[in-house]
């Protein structure tokens, strides 16, 4: 299967993340923010209808800490 069509999961580079909180603004369906602005991932797997939003959130991270991984299965 084409990797682009595979199910996607969110991955956060915890060391790179500085709690800017943009991901939580752009993808509140899957990401909450704690009181310091750091992401709380509610669900790692990205449903198809949120894929574009997830991509936008990953692109918006100023630290490039949010990644959208293609599932290996």
């Amino acid at each position: 299967m084409n990797p682009a069509n595979r199910a996607k999961t969110l991955r956060i580079d915890r060391i790179a993340c500085t709690g800017q909180g943009l991901c939580g603004e752009l993808l509140p369906e899957l990401i909450d923010l704690d009181e310091w602005g750091y992401p709380i991932v509610k669900d790692r797997s990205v449903p198809d209808h949120l894929r574009a939003h997830a991509r936008r959130a990953a692109a918006a991270c100023p630290l490039l800490a949010l990644h959208l991984d293609a599932d290996r299965t």
Binding site: Q20, G21, L22, E25, L26, A60, P62
Partner: peptide
């Protein structure tokens, strides 16, 4: 502004980046 983590009142922080 976005590097300094400005918190705008009317728009989202991501909109500053956009």
């Amino acid at each position: 502004a976005s590097g300094g983590r400005v918190v705008p009142r009317r728009i989202g922080r991501f909109e500053i980046g956009l």
